[in-house]
């Protein structure tokens, strides 16, 4: 009984200590930002009803001047590095846009990109002259988007032109290619060429954004899930003045991106959960056997 009382005292003090240095301290250190569940409530609901056919005409006559749509066989007018030298950043391929972005956000974005992204110097100019045009384009992009995206496709579309992910072998201009070095000299010219391209792109991007956006390999462990969620939904809410634009992901789109960040930043999660239960089972049995042994050894001592 006395031992249980002592255990109680030790446990209470330990828990108070934990509460103070973890949940309480962190609640005081970081400002609390309430998310809006990717509803983009500041943007008014669309009154116009989008027409896919009209949207297609608009897209193929205007958007493709800068953007590729690989799934429709439309190639990019410039490669990534030249684009960065021209605009500061490579415009995204539009094949998957409709699968990740909120339709209302997309339509408002087309009318006034800088305002909707809350980014002071957004490279894309306003590209729809009326809400009807915007709704048509958004409807078309939705119609060509695949139903289901792989986590990496979601990351590449939403984050991948500004953020590298070196653990996922992703650079801002694409996957790191597999190259071979010269067996006599050890020099890998193709790899060096690629590095130079990435470097050129990153320098331009850093000029455009003010700094090089961080590599996201392990961001899933460097920031809390709540931070990432609210930050992606509205970067200004967490970091006022940041150059990161609001990208307009839907909730499902964010979940997909998060899945990729977990793949690269916390790949042991599935194995951890599987191994954990076995190890704990072992120690519970161990403790039970130890208790029996202790009882047999201490017999007659009290």
């Amino acid at each position: 009984m006395k031992e249980l009382k002592i255990l109680g005292v030790v446990t209470v003090f330990t828990l108070i200590l934990y509460w103070g240095v973890e949940p309480f301290a962190h609640s005081q250190m970081h400002k609390h930002v309430e998310g809006n569940n990717f509803k983009y409530a500041d943007l008014s609901p669309l009154k116009a009803h989008g027409d896919v056919a009209k949207g297609k005409t608009l897209v193929t006559t205007t958007c493709v001047a800068c953007h590729s749509i690989e799934s429709q066989g439309i190639k990019a007018p410039m490669d990534a590095v030249t684009s960065a030298q021209t605009y500061g950043v490579n415009p995204p391929d539009l094949s998957n846009v409709g699968a990740l972005l909120d339709e209302k956000f997309l339509a408002h974005f087309l009318m006034d990109p800088a305002k909707v992204t809350k980014s002071k110097h957004f490279a894309m100019p306003p590209s729809a002259s009326s809400e009807q045009d915007a709704a048509d384009i958004a409807a078309y992009l939705k119609s060509i988007a695949p139903k289901e995206l792989k986590p990496k496709e979601a990351f590449v579309m939403a984050c991948g032109r500004c953020h590298a992910n070196r653990y996922g072998k992703w650079t801002q201009i694409g996957d790191v290619p597999e190259t071979k070095s010269n067996i006599k000299t050890g020099v890998d010219l193709a790899a060096l060429d690629f590095k130079k391209k990435v470097g050129t792109y990153q320098n331009k991007l850093a000029d455009y954004m003010g700094k090089l956006p961080p590599d996201l390999s392990i961001i899933i462990r460097a920031r809390s899930e709540h931070f990432l969620k609210t930050f992606v939904e509205d970067p200004q809410s967490q970091l006022p003045g940041t150059a990161m634009p609001r990208v307009g992901l839907t909730k499902e789109g964010f979940e997909k991106v998060k899945a990729y960040l977990e793949e690269t930043g916390d790949p042991s999660k599935p194995l951890r959960e599987e191994t954990g239960s076995k190890v704990l089972f072992f120690f519970v049995v161990f403790t039970f056997l130890a208790l029996l042994w202790k009882k047999s050894v201490w017999k007659g001592h009290h």
Binding site: T275, F286, F288, W293, K294
Partner: peptide
Amino acid sequence: VFLSKDIFVMGVYFTLFFYLVF
């Protein structure tokens, strides 16, 4: 005798410890 008690306490401790680890 002392060890048997230590090992029991260690069992409880390691159960908690590995709960934290995983």
